[in-house]
Amino acid sequence: MKWQRKDILGLEDMSVEDIRHILHTAKVMKEILMRPIKKLPTLKGKSVVNVFYEASTRTRTSFEMAAKVLGADTTSIAIAQSSVSKGESLYDTAKTIQAMRADLVILRHPSSGSAKFLADILDPNVINAGDGQHEHPTQALLDIFTMEEKLGPLDGKNVVIVGDVLHSRVARSNAWGLQKLGVNVTLVGPPTLLPIEMEGLGVKMTHDLNGALPGADVVMALRLQLERQKSGLFPSLREYSQLYGLTTDRLKKTGKESIVLHPGPMNRGVEISDDVADGVQALIEKQVTNGVAIRMALIYLLIGGSSNVVA
């Protein structure tokens, strides 16, 4: 297997071989992560820069930890932006970081396509840590890793993703990645948050959660941005929760010991009830641990060698 990617931008254009290679590498990384001494000399002298235009403590920390375990130096640049047009442009920020000789740039940005934009202009490798509503590949990879760890090979398994699919980069990346691995994906949400044009993702869609649950091996609840109520996309949290909230009773409809995932942070009592969130079926903490392992794998694969092979 020759690793030839310069950047990790999304799962839509990633091959099955690449996905499998990442998952394999992450398995090794997880073993290292579970050791008492979590430090490798592998990336000594490499510098990783986190550029976060959106607040996200957990993703940023996860990347930082991953880079540090591998021995790289990390710097974080948090750019608070009330409005996208204010301040230095992403283009200029990118050029500045490049001039500082960063080896890898990890970008979280509110605009869809910003990661590709950055990758197109930068020599250093780029990992997309979430670009607008487009993709969040590391989240999907850690979700897939967590599913596989629990369920074995995912081919033919049933995964239900429920919530605000329209605005979710997590849902998009998971839909692409899971499909490639032969998973039957069903997207569930109200018509305003799961409009007809989402059919372009090529997976099943329904507005009826109860009808989608039977046979589900995995149920993934998406975070609901509460401010969407103000835009009229759903009438109330109460009704949303009644129709699409994950509860213990509802989870029984799968007829299986299904596992429950959530990308976090959770709105308890909205998309997921307390007892489900804290229950044995929820692997939400495992997702966090696996997130570090996945990110270690990606960082290693991108900057572990000397030449950054451009695909």
Partner: peptide, 13 residues
């Protein structure tokens, strides 16, 4: 334009 392409790319339609 709102449609399959906008939905795929996560660009507001």
């Amino acid at each position: 334009r709102r449609g399959v392409s906008s939905a795929r790319m996560g660009l507001k339609g």
